[in-house]
Nucleic acid binder design. Structure first.
Lengths: 200, 200
DNA sequence: GTCTATAGATCGATAGAC
DNA sequence: GTCTATCGATCTATAGAC
């Protein structure tokens, strides 16, 4: 209820999310979060009893935000191409925002070092993403706005894997690497390279 | 020179490589390596003064092994398709060997948490991979064994990004996820789905 | 080459004052 | 809600015996 407290909890989540997407879950610590928020590490334990609890809250937060984004896109009645462009734009913004990577990418990369309770949550988050993307691809093939070979679920897997890998590799190879992968994604969907890739 | 010592150094590298590809560089520790090798942590410092030195040696090892693999493939005069199948098979074996991921994938995912001196080495390793793959794709397009849209370097980026992402995601979604991405890669290269994906 | 002993830092976590 | 104080574990690293 307390205004300050609620804000601190949110700031912890925000900083935790930032650290996960930049340094990874293993390299994220209460000390780093506390320093950034100008509080002491034990204060975090009041909001999240353990690091595992914080990790769980972060994954739930990612899932919630993603679900909200999906609902908004549905409410706006976006075309398949615009929906996909919006999805790709999220990844693009991750890169521009301090070379962040996809939460699914970093958390699956670290999966074997994560607390056990986090694993099913990461799986569910990945599943959310794939279910939505597969539905969009099916819709696009049906309405003729997309042309591609293979099963929609296979293409959804390929696109999300490529985007995650591209975000990670572009840290070493630069933004052009990410843009190149986006170009190939649109090419593979039979969509011209005009502005479909979506600029900011 | 000492036989035991040389062997220990090699075993450290082997275990370190395993830990990097399963848990990540941040989560890899001298303690874990020492325990697996039935030695004490300080013994590792004799072979590698610091964890950074071990990290550097591991990246050099990855690069060396990859270069050797490339040379062997070149010596055997493999076709483009067989070369690509071999490359994909490496990734496939990673997954089967304890759900390992691609070293480039995990190290770029953790790049912002790595010691500075490791960054250019990871970049060079990534560049090695892309240079070879781009050359293979160009050769395949020239000799007519591959058909694809876009620049060879863009396709190389897309394929390697997709494979890295697929290895990571398949930890959460199972091997079928990896196989699906491999199918789409071959489809995108205009190659039938016969045995080109390479079994084992 | 590997050991014991030890240092110093950081980590996640708890108790209890305020 | 946040603090100080403190704990035990783990981590990287060094010194010196064997």
């Amino acid at each position: 209820m307390n205004q300050r407290g609620t804000d601190t909890r949110e700031q912890i989540l925000k900083m935790g999310s930032h650290l996960v997407q930049t340094r990874g879950y293993s390299a994220m610590s209460f000390g780093q979060i506390a320093e950034a928020l100008a509080i002491k590490p034990p204060a975090i334990h009041y909001h999240f009893p353990s690091k595992t609890d914080l990790g769980l809250a972060l994954v739930e937060r990612y899932r919630g935000r993603y679900r909200r984004w999906i609902d908004e896109a549905a409410d706006q009645g976006l075309s398949v191409q615009d929906s996909l462009a919006g999805y790709i734009r999220i990844a693009s913004r991750f890169h521009d925002d301090g070379h962040k990577v996809c939460p699914v990418g970093i958390l699956t990369a670290e999966l074997l070092a994560l607390p056990d309770v986090l694993v099913p949550e990461v799986r569910a988050m990945t599943d959310d993403l794939l279910t939505w993307l597969t539905a969009q691809l099916s819709r696009g093939r049906s309405d003729g706005s997309l042309q591609f070979k293979g099963a929609p679920v296979d293409v959804a897997l390929s696109i999300s894997a490529a985007l995650q890998g591209a975000l990670q590799m572009s840290r070493a190879m630069g933004r052009e690497a990410f843009d190149a992968v986006v170009r190939q994604i649109w090419l593979g969907l039979g969509v011209g390279t005009d502005d479909s890739a979506g600029h900011v």
